[in-house]
Every structure is written in C-alpha cells, then in structure tokens.
C-alpha cells in the first residue's frame, strides 16, 4: 500500500471517530511549561529565586563592584584599626566608605571580601555540583537500565562511598595529596587547592544523584513506552537518551539545585577547618574561622559573613524545594 493510500483510506474509516479536541483549559502546554507556571505561582520559590540570582550576579560581577566600590579585597586600612587591633568606630567600623566595616587586625574591607568570597564559594559549589551530577547521571542510568552485575558493582560502590565519613576522609586526603605534589615549604597555589576540593566533593557527591537516577530509571524502564520503542527495534542509545533521559530532567534539576547549597556549606566547612581555601583568598569559611576569636569583642565580623552565607544557602534550598514541587506536584505535601 502506498503512502497516499493511507491518506485516502482515512476518509472512509470510522465514522464515530470524529476528530476530538483535547480537553479545554490546557491547550498546547508542555510538561516543562506547566512546571514553569507552577513555579511562577509559588511566592517563596520566586522570592528565593530572585535572592539567589542577586547573589550569583554579585559574585560574577565582583571585579566590577570592586571598581565601583573603589576598594580591593586585599587593601589594608591600618589607620582605621585601634591599638587593641579592633576597627575604630561603631559595629566593627561600619561607615559610608566601608559598608560592612573592617576586619580586626589587618583592617581589610569586609564587604568587598564577602563579594569575592561569594565568587569563590559559588564557583566551587557549582563546579562540584555539575561534576557530581554528570557522574551521577551516567552511572545511575547505566546501573538502573542494564541491571545485573553492572548494577551490583555500582550499587556496592555507592553504598561504600556513602559509608565513608566525608570529613575524616577529607582531613586525611588533603595533606596527602598536597604532599604528593608539593614540598613542605612550597606555597600551594589556590587553583590547586580548589581543584582538590572539587575532586573531593565529586568523589563523594555523585552517589546521591546516581541513586536517584537509578531508582527513576528502574521505575521507568518497565513502562510500556520503553517497551514500545524496543518493539520497534530501538537500540540502547535511543532508549537511554531519547526515551529515558527526557523523563529524568526533573529529578536531576532538583538534585542539582539542592546540591549547590550543600557544597556551599561543605566548602565553607573545609576552609573553616583549614584544609580548603586559605587566607588571603577571600572565603566565607576562613572569615568565620577568624571571626570566632572576636565573637565577643567585634561581633560584626561574625555577623556579616554569617548572615550572608545563611541567606545564600537558605535561598538555594528554598528555591530547590520550590522547583521540586513545581516539577513533581504529586510529591508536594
């Protein structure tokens, strides 16, 4: 039968099958657009989304802000530090010139250091999240769809990685790796430290995404649309990346958006413990570490970085939750 014949047959076929319009009220809307509409309607998610965006722009535009603000993160204002090494003036030296005041002792500007710290933090967290998500997707899909011994091995590795205590491992690995490449007296370059941190996060972090993706794939692979593709002769690539992957974007996006704040706190924690970024590179963890000794005498030094990191992590988390509710309305309370 020719193609045109199929076309003409149609006229004669099934009088009752009057072309019926889809139900009104939801015309031409893709699942993505529907999720977007739901996200738009969620006030908390939208507000935290804007806050998140604000922080990201701030971090990205740090050099520009430095230019406008007129102070570099390394500049020391010793003339504004009193003899007891605390900044002069009220509340840690807050003034029109130094919006968030100055650090005790060195007298560096806290505002501009926070802006740069934001940059460090977001860079590390986003890179780590990208890397872990990519790893997690590939291993999760392969493990979930292929099953069998491959799944057995990957699942075992996941369980193994989850059982390792991250902090202890990080405390042990950092000096070992550094010692492998640099002598005890060498200055260790910042990019190297950051690289090792991202590597550490990736090593431990992919398991969450992999588990999630694996579970989703297991529930999807038995769906009849996958069977339909197989029945038409589809190969592994088509099934994994054409049929399954489009159904995984939602959980992947959610886990990515929730991984970022996790790494922000993780990075701050490592740097706080002295095994991440070190002074003079601007960083939240380092700042908070130092500010602890002045908690009584100069609380502003603790409050400013504390509030910024709190807001940052809260905004990311709330937005991630909103995203989850929008993408999967059934899972919301």
């Amino acid at each position: 039968m020719s193609l045109s014949q199929i076309g003409t047959d149609a006229a004669g076929v099934d009088a009752t099958a009057v072309p019926v319009a889809p139900q009104p009220g939801m015309v031409g809307r893709s699942p993505g657009r529907l999720a977007w509409a739901r996200l738009r309607a969620n006030r908390t998610a939208m507000v935290s989304g804007w806050i998140m965006l604000f922080f990201i722009v701030l971090g990205l535009a740090a050099p520009l802000i430095e230019l406008l603000y007129g102070i570099s993160p390394f500049e020391q204002f010793q003339d504004k530090i009193a003899n007891n090494s605390l900044p002069l003036g009220y509340f840690g030296g807050v003034s029109g010139e130094h919006w968030f005041g100055l650090e005790p002792q060195l007298g560096r500007d806290i505002f501009i250091r926070l802006v740069y710290g934001l940059r460090t933090s977001l860079f590390i967290a986003t890179s780590a999240a990208l890397l872990t998500t990519a790893l997690g997707i590939v291993l999760g899909i392969v493990s979930g769809y292929l099953g069998g011994w491959i799944d057995g091995v990957i699942s075992w590795v996941i369980d193994f990685a989850l059982a390792l205590p991250f902090l202890i491992f990080a405390l042990a690995i950092m000096p070992t790796v550094t010692a492998r490449f640099y002598g005890p007296r060498d200055e260790i370059p910042v990019p190297f430290r950051i690289g090792v941190m991202i590597f550490l996060f990736a090593l431990f972090g992919w398991t969450g995404t992999a588990r999630l993706v694996r579970g989703q794939v297991i529930s999807l692979r038995e769906r009849e649309f996958v069977e339909a593709a197989r029945a038409s002769g589809a190969g592994l690539f088509h099934i994994l990346f054409r049929q399954l992957l489009p159904n995984l974007w939602a959980p992947i996006l959610v886990s990515f958006s929730l991984a970022v704040p996790g790494y922000i706190t993780g990075e701050a924690a490592l740097s706080f413990l002295g095994i991440g970024v070190v002074d003079p590179t601007p960083d939240f963890g380092v700042m908070i570490n130092k500010s602890l000794s002045y908690a009584q005498t100069d609380p502003a030094y603790l409050i400013f970085p504390g509030v910024v990191i709190f807001l940052l992590v809260l905004a990311f988390n709330l937005f991630g939750d909103g995203l989850r509710d929008a993408l999967d309305p059934k899972s919301s309370r």
Partner: peptide
Amino acid sequence: KPIKGNPPSLIN
C-alpha cells in the same frame, strides 16, 4: 454503537 465524544469535565 459507541457514544461519540468524551465524558465532560465536572469543572466545565
């Protein structure tokens, strides 16, 4: 002999 069309939505 089917009934043509679909059952209505109870919103509309």
